[in-house]
Nucleic acid binder design. Structure first.
Length: 801
DNA sequence: CTGGTCATTTTTTTT
DNA sequence: AAATGACCAG
């Protein structure tokens, strides 16, 4: 199955209050009661009616935050504020899309200036500003945006250059340090000046080199987008004045997750008018690790002493037991403003806490419970989700859902773009769009292999160091480099000609071609000419076929790509009319396409329209709600995560994460843990999460299935010999297999004797199956390579009978 | 230069 | 268990 590509964001999300379809009366009719205030609590009304000045909305989970925020914007417009003076900033595209959507239902399209209303993510807003004010920000207009992997590459290179032995430093730790510095608006130079100890000096060297590299490559990383915008607003009075003038009313969503750079951006914009409304919940602050500063929200009132503060405590989402569990849990955090939550939705069910034997059992328990909810309680699949702390837990769950034929989707937005073939294709495109992008060039100059190997690249790099120049420029005249074979020179020239062909296509045909089809055409041509297509067509394995399909998906995504409307970008005149912009060329379109691709997040991928259970991390679940939630892996080291266990503040963030998970549930909540879990190939006994012990016993039903027989026998299979080093459930080897009467056929899809196809070894016959709790294996005789032992879970066997 | 084998490392969350 | 990286034979 091929995963979809994120379409344009903006799908309607879950709605937490009953009345969202209503629209305000026509502006002409004198209304005594404002329909925007219908069926709101007093606190909600107060927030919606607030016009000028700083406003802090402390919105607990399920408190109708989005309703309040969207109605407040509608109300601002109703009371005469031109929409183009309003700026709303969110964290994810999905949140922005949802907000836009809901404002659309409240404010008619024909309101003057309506289309100039800006609702954007922090990052996309920053990209826009940086392109518009490129010269003031001292950057090139058309920059590449580096994702984590590119960033890692660039950091690796600069570490090598700075002489940091990679045994003492990992690119990840250096990257984290650099990221922190950027969040604090510390440039490489400033960081180097402050660096006093050996550790900081070493980081500083890498930081300086990394920055130079980015500059040379005409690239920005995610942190740069925020840092450069913040610095621009801080240092350039003209730009700041202009933008303050333009955006008279600000709204910041999920304010508890803003970092220092975002803080500076928000308050620079608000400085002249203080019309800033921030919405958030300190108890849901879960991004401290990436620089989010919870003090931003805790100290808002200090910054704006005249701020109006409105707590929204009533929960319209969850039933009482769930709210009770969440409240009791979060009360264990000491560094916290006390806040009470209540609901009027009735008592509801208690939550189930289930101890399972191992992760496969856990997955089975969750799937069975969801089936029960679906079959007996009429809960649709899409109203259920499984949440976990780390992505690695998704595999086993995924398998369980698949084998039970329950439809599911994994919210992993980056998954598609993380595929090798897609990353390669994007690297080609980025290099075509940005000829300075060395990281992208390195990624694809020899993919597929075209005789430009490591030695050649090393020689070119050396040459670039010796006669100071950039590798990318040396590449233009490969013949000048000592020691590069004539053959390699020819390959390089061919490569250059190919890429230039695409760039010329951009420049000259851009205005002639229908740009829209031109983009897809360019990508198709690139896939063909680069040899990517031929590389996957050659072999006829299922894997390579899928890769080809994925490349096709990329082309369709480009064909479907709708560039953001100029007015949605806030490019409007003072009347709120969209500015007349020149028709975008293919190159412009390509840049916008790449930009959109760079800024998709996991959460953006969740499509409420599909009828499937959602599997996602706790982080990705923020802001969502479901009838039924299962949280897996409530174990020490996993839910308070290992790396957070040592510091109290980090432990509290883990607890907030757990709180976020619990409060996603409307009616049904299940928390599970496995007594034994396989981690990095090792089966280990687990310790119950301390958070389970903090839950109120009156609101949960606790059942321990770790040792008992509950419908599954643990044993049977032949010959498996993994050691059971654990207590009571001793001695058995074998697999989970349903006892008599259970569904889904019991035995394997690969009976002994059946014929199978393996992507690499070809046709074979199953000789024996060895069942194990973690990864059953099969002995298969192939005509090509003889008998092999394969792990069924990983070998992509297909039955061909 | 390529494609294989062997050893080492992985240890969170994400715009 | 799997991904990456180093090394080597062809």
């Amino acid at each position: 199955m091929t995963p979809g590509i994120p379409g344009t964001p903006g799908t309607p999300g879950n709605i937490s209050t009953p009345d969202t379809t209503m629209t305000p009366d026509a502006p002409t009719s004198p209304v005594m009661t404002n329909p925007l205030l219908d069926s709101l609590t007093d606190a909600q009304k107060k927030a919606v009616e607030h016009l000028d000045g700083p406003l802090l909305v402390l919105a607990g989970p399920g408190s109708g935050k989005t309703t309040v925020v969207t109605r407040r914007i509608a109300n601002l417009i109703d009371s005469g504020i031109p929409p183009w003076q309003i700026l709303a900033l969110t964290f994810t595209n999905k949140a922005a899309g949802e907000m836009r959507e809901r404002i659309n239902t409240l404010v008619p399209e024909n309101v003057p200036g309506r289309r100039g209303l800006t609702v954007a993510t922090f990052h996309s807003f920053c990209v826009r500003l940086l392109r518009n004010y490129a010269s003031q920000a001292n950057i090139h207009e058309r920059f590449s945006i580096y994702d984590g992997a590119d960033q890692r590459e660039a950091i690796k290179q600069s570490m090598k250059e700075a002489g940091l032995s990679s045994s003492n430093w990992t690119p990840a730790s250096v990257g984290a340090a650099i990221s922190n510095a950027k969040n604090q608006l510390l440039t490489a130079e400033a960081f180097a000046q402050e660096a006093s100890d050996f550790y900081a000096r070493s980081i500083a060297k890498a930081y300086v080199g990394y920055e130079r590299r980015l500059k040379d490559n005409n690239a920005l990383d995610f942190d740069d987008l925020l840092m450069l915008t913040a610095r621009l607003l801080k240092n350039n009075n003209d730009v700041r004045d202009e933008l303050q003038q333009r955006y008279q009313y600000l709204l910041i969503d999920e304010y508890q997750d803003t970092n220092h750079a975002q803080f500076v951006i928000a308050h620079s914009l608000a400085a002249s008018h203080s019309n800033i409304c921030v919405v958030g919940d300190p108890d849901q602050s879960i991004y401290g690790w990436r620089g989010a500063d919870i003090r931003n929200i805790l100290e808002f009132e200090t910054l704006y002493p005249d701020a109006v503060v409105i707590p929204l405590g009533q929960n319209f989402r969850s039933t009482a037991h769930i709210v009770e569990i969440a409240s009791k849990l979060i009360e264990n955090n000491t560094k916290r403003k006390k806040k009470t939550l209540h609901t009027e939705l009735g008592e509801g069910e208690k939550a189930q806490v289930i101890i399972c034997q191992d992760e496969h059992h856990e997955a089975k328990v969750i799937v069975d419970d969801f089936k029960r909810l679906h079959d007996d309680n009429d809960v649709p699949w899409k109203e259920m989700a499984v949440l976990y702390r780390v992505n690695s837990l998704s595999r086993v769950l995924e398998e369980a859902f698949r084998s039970a034929s329950v439809p599911y989707v994994i919210a992993r937005g980056t998954a598609f773009y993380d595929r090798k073939e897609i990353k390669d294709a994007l690297a080609y495109l980025r290099y075509a769009a940005n000829p300075s992008d060395e990281v992208s060039m390195r990624g694809i100059i020899n993919t597929p292999t075209r005789g430009i190997g490591k030695t050649t690249l090393d020689r070119i790099e050396n040459h670039a160091i010796f006669n100071p120049s950039r590798m990318i420029d040396v590449l233009q005249n490969p013949e000048q480099v000592e020691g590069v074979s004539a053959r390699a020179v020819g390959s390089i020239q061919k490569f250059n000609t190919m890429v230039n062909g695409w760039r010329v296509m951009n420049e000259h045909e851009g205005m002639l071609l229908e740009a829209q089809s031109g983009l897809a055409e360019l990508i198709e041509r690139m896939i063909r000419e680069s040899g990517l297509e031929a590389m996957f067509k050659k072999s006829r394995t299922e894997e390579d076929f899928e890769r080809l399909e994925n490349l096709g998906e990329l082309v369709s995504a480009a064909a479907d790509f709708v560039p953001p409307d100029a007015s949605d970008l806030g490019m409007v005149d003072t009347e709120g009319n969209a500015l007349e912009l020149p028709e975008p060329t293919v190159l412009d379109l390509l840049s916008m396409f790449l930009e959109q691709v760079a800024l998709v997040s996991d959460a953006d991928m969740i499509d409420p329209a599909n009828g499937a259970v959602t599997l996602m991390t706790l982080h990705a679940a923020k802001g969502l709600e479901f009838d039924g939630i299962a949280m897996a892996g409530l174990e020490q080291g996993l839910l308070p995560h290992q790396r957070a266990a040592h510091q109290e503040s980090e432990l509290e963030e883990e607890r907030r994460l757990c709180f976020v998970g619990i409060t996603r549930a409307r009616k049904h909540l299940m928390l599970t843990r496995a007594a034994v879990r396989t981690h990095r190939g090792m089966r280990e006994r687990t310790i119950e999460s301390q958070f389970l012990g903090e839950l109120p016993g009156d609101s949960i039903i606790y059942s321990d299935h770790a040792g008992v027989d509950d419908g599954y026998v643990y044993g049977g299979g032949g010959g498996g010999s993994y050691k059971d080093e654990f207590g009571p459930s001793s001695g058995d080897t074998g697999s989970w297999s349903p006892k008599s009467g259970s569904r889904s056929g019991g035995d394997s899809e690969f009976p002994v004797g059946c014929r199978v196809m393996h992507p690499k070894f070809g046709l074979g016959k199953i000789e024996a199956i060895t069942r194990r709790p973690a990864g059953s294996s099969a002995q298969v005789t192939f005509s090509s390579v003889g008998t092999k032992t394969l792990i069924l879970e990983y070998a992509k066997l297909q039955r061909v009978d």
